[in-house]
Computed example of a mutant assay.
Amino acid sequence: MTRTVYVNGDYLPETEAKVSVFDRGFLMADGVYEVTSVLGGKLIDFQGHCVRLARSLSELDMTNPMTDAEWLAMHRELVAQNGIQDGMIYLQVTRGNPGDRDFAFPGPDVTPTVVAFTQAKPGLAENPQAAIGIRVISIPDIRWGRRDIKTVQLLYPSMGKMMAKKAGVDDAWFVEEGHVTEGTSNNAYIVKGNRIITRPLSSDILHGITRAAVLRFAAEAQMVVEERLFTVEEAKQADEAFISSASAFVMPVVELDGAQIGTGKPGKLVPRLREIYLEEMRKAAI
């Protein structure tokens, strides 16, 4: 079945969607993106994604081409036209097509390029991986210094995913000066007792929308949240570990660099946190 996608105000069959070869998103990775999950035909934490999108655009001196209400209407239309019950909507905004390749940014008169499409993921919240956990390796974090901006510069994270695949595991955690920064496409956490430990917000990591919700729900459930750096060795000695993202939600991590974390199986706190997150997000979905 051919999907309907959104390109600059038009809803088109994916086979007819086109973007200029001179678009700076294509030539310079000069663009940002958001991925919003859909559960039961409704958008998860949509307002959070709008806020982060606006921030990313502002940090790059790009114009936000739509209001929150217009973003919402477009997302809902894509869900409806593609009959999405469980899945994701990928949204990308680039600086647009200035007419020719140039390192210098074009002026404000250039209209941003907006592209969005759906990905159907039946049973997204019932991922069987959550029952067994994932295994990760650590790799050097050699990305650029503004990881807080959700740009389309994803080559090294993609290479990290492939390093993990080659090692026979599920994902990789980036490490800088001995401390874990984040996963290739997710935020990283360890658990010691009733204490959840995760790196504080800065330009070193993405300001995860799921991260913010998870930490809020954890605090409400009387779990202690400690935002500080943690090392690879500390992670190996943790009781539990997990990642969070818009598509994985809360996912247990049971192995790091071949070392078993805790019992080597999902513990008690992380599965409970996943349960709370999904329950609360379904209630608030729009």
Rank of each mutant, 00 (worst) to 15 (best):
E234T: 09
A238L: 08
T181P: 01
D170V: 10
S185M: 11
V191E: 02
V224L: 13
G178E: 12
A235L: 12
R216L: 12
H179M: 14
E234Q: 14
F174Y: 09
M223K: 13
E176Y: 14
Q237C: 13
R211K: 12
E227H: 05
A188R: 01
E233Y: 12
M162W: 09
L201V: 11
F230G: 04
G183L: 05
S202G: 10
A213C: 09
D170R: 03
W173Y: 13
L215D: 02
V180L: 03
S203V: 13
V191I: 12
S202L: 11
G193F: 13
R216Y: 03
A241E: 07
M223N: 10
L215K: 01
Y189H: 06
E182W: 02
R211D: 09
V175Q: 06
P200R: 11
V224S: 13
Q237I: 06
R211Q: 11
K192F: 04
L229R: 07
D239T: 10
E182N: 02
A212L: 13
I205D: 00
D239Y: 06
R195D: 08
S185D: 06
V225D: 04
V175E: 11
E240F: 04
T231E: 07
K236E: 15
E240A: 05
A219Q: 13
M163E: 14
R211A: 08
E176V: 12
V225S: 06
D239S: 10
R216A: 14
